[in-house]
Design a protein around this nucleic acid. Structure first.
Lengths: 341, 341
DNA sequence: GTGAAAGCGCTAACAC
DNA sequence: GTGTTAGCGCTTTCAC
């Protein structure tokens, strides 16, 4: 007998293994799938052989036969702001948690980033590929209607995003409007009166945050919240922020940034223009990403529970996969007071 | 005729569509795959029908038949430091670029995060799943040997990590040792004499960075570089950094942090302990992530070209898929001088 | 240029 | 408890 793992015989499929084990392919399939009704001895023998030859049943074939793939699609639609920072921290963090959670549940994750403008068919294409059992959409971007359409005819889909009264697709997300109110209230409590919202208000989540801040301004009889649009990529955003700041210097004493990333950038620009935070201008972010603790001074922000979001997405998706109909899940935001407001 | 998209007939497969079109399944297959030798009229008819019914050929079946899936696996092994920040910015950024690059090349991306300690079989399992045409491993972690073993018998694999003389697997990565030298040289040029390396030196990349710094200290006759190990998760790292700083206060005037993330954390702790940067202690990071520009003062660091790395990984993988044998790709680091050293 | 037929690797009735 | 068989949906010779 030679010493090396006797992989001299190539085992390419269940049939090869069956021949080696002296049983039928059906039995091998049952044994490897951990099905009941297989003789303990037979099973052991088959498992030993499989191990020895490093054999694993082909998931494609199995998937085709069983009409399920064990794969969940995760798709990130990139809206108008195509070059949106690829590493957008929030989405990437969510993706990390999703990967963990799906793995825990025995699913694989197929990731797709799409540009809806170039491919209006992005969602159907993914669903229709036959490669995935269900889909998680990260961010509605500007594709709300597209998603609604699909939701009517396709069950196993859950979306991370903003909840709108009466919508038909199942969504998981933070109560952005409430979060926006919290941010604005904090800015005002810290002494601000003339508030600006920093960030693009086109995406629904951001629009809701903006609306929440506006709610508060209106209720308290303060001037309306000023919208200061920016892109999401750091380079462009920095320039835009600098321009906004110059244009409105002195007219603003509170800034509610749409995300922590934007807030951090803003902090840098404020310092550059010699504006003291929180003395001259109060500032809040949104998300509570790690960076929020590391800015100088550390950022007051509105926390989203990303881990809970990921768990919620996967939990709801699995329930839908099992045929349940599910309600959307709206998570509560939490104000984290640090030093910028 | 009724108004709605006449999706009354469900088209579940190529055979259904063939029936509608009055042709054979084979012809439909050819038409939809864009093969030559199909009558223009026939092709148009089939394409129109497919569009009308939102039909798309099942990729699983196609994959099974053609013995290729159009999917590239991307796996992130989480070493000993299991709870390594899920959102580890560097890997996540790389992942984003990989997603773009693979999409551009017409491939889908299947993502898997694995804990080798709990599953020694992680790599074979992924490869053997039959779901992927090739695999990109992000980070060697402490799995160098495992990867070497696999490389002997499996071609389409490329790894992001550190290059070691004579290794057998194809790797793409920055010249970490050179980067380490650059960082140390900069610290010294800025006036430091007693240098410490902040971070775990177990992963090969970090070990190489440390070794590079050590090279410089040795060459210049300075005291050896002190290793200050930490975990990667922000919470633990902060504590550990604080402890290191207290223990070695005054004995260190230059810190080379293994990553920008660690450097940013370190900066916060230094400030907390009233140590001025760069006056009392010089500091450099590694990576040049966005955060490096936003710390106060902004971080001097060693830049890795992540986009080039992603392109390299995909390019080499596709070449190997095509049967070529490829050399590893070592990318040059670049010193970015800001204000901490 | 198109149809017929075999088969990718696996699973699930259905026999026995 | 195990073998046999018929596909899952697609592609690809091989005929014609």
């Amino acid at each position: 007998m030679d010493e090396d793992k006797s992989t001299r015989v190539m085992v390419r499929n269940i049939t090869d293994l069956a021949r080696l084990a002296g049983v039928s392919p059906g039995t091998v399939s049952r044994a490897l799938a951990g099905k009941s009704l297989v003789n303990a001895k037979t099973r052991e023998k088959i498992e030993a052989l499989a191990r020895e030859h490093g054999f694993r049943p082909n998931q494609m074939a199995s998937g085709l036969r069983r009409q399920k793939t064990g794969v969940i699609g995760v798709v990130i639609p990139l809206g108008h702001d195509t070059r949106q920072q690829i590493s957008d921290s929030f989405f990437m963090t969510l993706l990390g948690y999703l990967a963990d959670e799906l793995t825990r549940q025995g699913y694989d994750l197929m990731l797709r980033r799409v540009v809806p403008e170039e491919d209006s068919d992005w969602l159907d294409r993914f669903i229709g590929s036959g490669m995935i059992d269900g889909v998680i959409v990260i961010g509605q971007s500007d594709q709300f209607d597209r998603i609604e359409d699909v939701a009517d005819g396709y069950g196993p889909m859950v979306v991370w995003g903003n909840h709108t009264e009466g919508q038909r697709h199942c969504v998981v997300g933070t109560d952005n409007r409430l979060g926006g109110r919290m941010a604005a209230e904090r800015l005002i409590a810290a002494g601000a009166q003339r508030i600006a919202f920093l960030g693009d208000t086109t995406p629904m989540e951001f629009a809701a945050r903006f609306a929440g801040a506006q709610d508060v301004a209106t209720r308290l009889g303060l001037p309306p919240v000023l919208a200061l649009p920016t892109h999401l990529s750091p380079d462009r955003a920095s320039e835009e922020i600098a321009a906004h700041l110059s244009a409105h210097a002195g007219a603003i004493d509170g800034i509610f940034a749409a995300t922590d990333t934007l807030a951090a950038l803003c902090l840098t620009e404020l310092r550059g223009q010699g504006i003291a935070v929180p003395r001259d201008v109060k500032l809040t972010g949104f998300d509570d990403l790690p960076i929020a603790r590391q800015t100088v001074p550390p950022l007051t922000t509105v926390r989203q529970d990303i881990a809970a979001g990921a768990r919620g997405l996967v939990d709801l998706l699995l329930r839908r996969l099992a045929g349940e109909t599910t309600e959307s899940l709206v998570l509560p935001p939490e104000l984290v007071v640090r030093e910028t407001a």
